[in-house]
Amino acid sequence: MRIFFAWLTILFLLMGALPAFSAQDAPGAQNEKSLSQDALETPAQSAADGEPKSLKGAQEKTANFEEEYVEEGDADEKTQGERVAIADPLEPFNRAMYLFNDRLYFWLLKPAAQGYNVVVPEPARISIKNFFTHLAYPSRLLSLLLQADFAGAAEETGRFVINTLWGIGGLLDPAAGGELKLQRQEADLGQTLGVYGVGHGFYIVWPIWGPSSPRDTLTIVGDTFLYPPSYISPWYVNRGVWAFEKINSASLRIGDYESLISAAIDPYLAIRDAYAQYRAKDINARKTRSLLFKDHEDPTPKPGDGQKDDFLRH
């Protein structure tokens, strides 16, 4: 009797599952059809049956161009948060520094990184980057603890141990892959102040370090103090290691900056806005992980929140 029920259940499941799949496929298939029809319509086809359609399309377009813009309140509320502006009282200075950094990149860093690219294969460069990131663990740990993100601090520590032992001292990143899925927690000190509600203050572009603010300058300073290679002496070896790290990480990002500025109308403003948006969302995502703040926040994860480590939180 029991077996009979088991079979019945399986039969039900099969019957139930099949229509569910096809029902789900159907709109997709239609969608595909309409997509390909719309986009790949040959001129002959559109000449044959397209006249009334294109006429209608043209009318529609004119109507659209005449339509005024009306602010949508509620629907956009979720995205309103990203209309973050950052005060920029030092704009002339910042623009000069931006230009300096731009030249530094194109004249010095990029050629160096390109040459380096030729000599060192990509997997090695990725390993070197992993190694330096691994060494910055103290700064991430301190930030996570100060943010009251203890789960994050535990993940970071787990990563540090695993990657030290099984990742050849941090050259490889076995903790991020496989079943562990321990992703690096991008936590820093300026961000920590942000989690506690401290604002940027204003925008400042540092030579070499780039976009920052008085608050985020703490990140630059703190990172230097909490970063073991900062304590290497003599000074020229220290600077050498530092430059090597910069060139290595730049070698993996050649082209990013170029495409950013080629897409921008005013590259200085584009970068300033990207910086403000990035930090604001980063801090919001961090707040949802903090024991102190997560209950007061919107429970739905914001874009860019570390969804990949979702399961670790439950």
């Binding site: 309409s34 995205t79 502006a85 109308i265 403003l269 806005d273 990035y278 874009p303």
Partner: peptide, 26 residues
């Protein structure tokens, strides 16, 4: 009844918002 893209957010940065800042300034 057709879904179309009106903004792309790459690494936390909304393109629409990024251009908005630039156009507003001009």
């Amino acid at each position: 009844d057709k879904w179309k893209v009106y903004d792309v957010v790459v690494e936390n940065v909304s393109l629409v918002q990024n251009y908005r800042t630039q156009f507003n300034d001009i």
